[in-house]
Amino acid sequence: MSIQHFRVALIPFFAAFCLPVFAHPETLVKVKDAEDQLGARVGYIELDLNSGKILESFRPEERFPMMSTFKVLLCGAVLSRVDAGQEQLGRRIHYSQNDLVEYSPVTEKHLTDGMTVRELCSAAITMSDNTAANLLLTTIGGPKELTAFLHNMGDHVTRLDRWEPELNEAIPNDERDTTMPAAMATTLRKLLTGELLTLASRQQLIDWMEADKVAGPLLRSALPAGWFIADKSGAGERGSRGIIAALGPDGKPSRIVVIYTTGSQATMDERNRQIAEIGASLIKHW
């Protein structure tokens, strides 16, 4: 067993022997301040990774656009098919120029040779490549099948209805392509620590998230040296922004954090800054 596999296998073990965790309302004060600064709703939840206990939450059962955070769930569904012998990570998928959609920095470079399922998941999570996500959605049967996968996990809230990039439209009061912070946090925890996926697939999923290259201005910008984070960000229309993450000190994750916002007129930089400040408060009061 590799060191990384050992780390993920012992996530519940280490967490069980940690000192009790206590909620700190100071972080919620910052979440509410972010709402004021952005002029928009902000949803927040913080779960203990081992027990699933909610440590703090704000608007945990209000719907927010998922945006690209759905790509972690998508690759979880792909990995479940791999575990069941219905898919192979090494299978190569070929596609054409007509398949390319807006923001496809990886797939646009491989029109000639195609990409493997493993490479597509890596591109979808680490670079948020939209064509990679659409190609992977095709392998599982489309958005409705991802929703069905989530329902089978016990998540009857999260739903995907459309493809990239239309799913980022974020129309107010439109339930399409949305989740709730509580539902997303619980589902992410199941994917990373539950028995739904094999140990190898859980490790692969967290490795992809740990290698995320496009979430630097968010929670990662607030992390002290030595902290662990595996995350996936999302951005959408109407001032929408979000991030889902597993993080913790001492090089291992111990909490799940989900943050979503929508309806702001603020710039992307300002949305990023507010999420980073929430992260800084979380870490300060850990």
Rank of each mutant, 00 (worst) to 15 (best):
D161T: 06
D48Y: 04
E169H: 11
I93N: 03
D250T: 11
E166S: 13
V8L: 14
W163R: 10
W286C: 01
S254T: 14
S96H: 11
T178R: 02
D207A: 15
G154L: 05
E169Y: 12
A185C: 07
S233D: 00
W163N: 11
D174V: 04
E237D: 14
G90A: 13
Q203M: 14
D99Q: 13
N168H: 05
E237Y: 12
R41G: 05
A230M: 07
E87M: 12
W286T: 01
Y95S: 02
M67T: 10
D231Y: 04
P12L: 12
I275G: 01
S104L: 01
T193P: 01
R176W: 07
A182Y: 14
I11K: 05
R189Y: 15
Q37P: 04
Q204E: 14
T198N: 12
N173D: 14
T138C: 13
K109W: 09
N50Y: 13
E237H: 12
A124K: 00
T27Q: 06
G43V: 00
T147L: 07
D99A: 10
A245M: 04
V117K: 01
S233P: 05
V42S: 03
A170N: 09
R162G: 08
I11H: 05
G263Q: 06
M115G: 02
P224I: 03
R41T: 10
W208P: 00
A225Q: 15
E35H: 02
T179M: 01
F70W: 08
C121Q: 02
R59E: 03
K30N: 07
R118F: 11
L188D: 00
W208G: 01
S122G: 13
D212S: 07
T187D: 11
L218M: 10
L219E: 03
L146M: 13
P105Y: 05
P253G: 08
Q274H: 12
T179Q: 00
S104G: 06
R63L: 08
I171N: 15
A9S: 15
T262I: 09
L55S: 06
S281G: 08
G242M: 02
G43W: 00
Y95Q: 02
M184C: 06
I171L: 15
E56M: 08
S80G: 11
G76D: 01
S68W: 00
H151W: 15
H94Q: 13
I244G: 02
R255E: 03
L73R: 00
R241A: 04
I125A: 04
T27F: 04
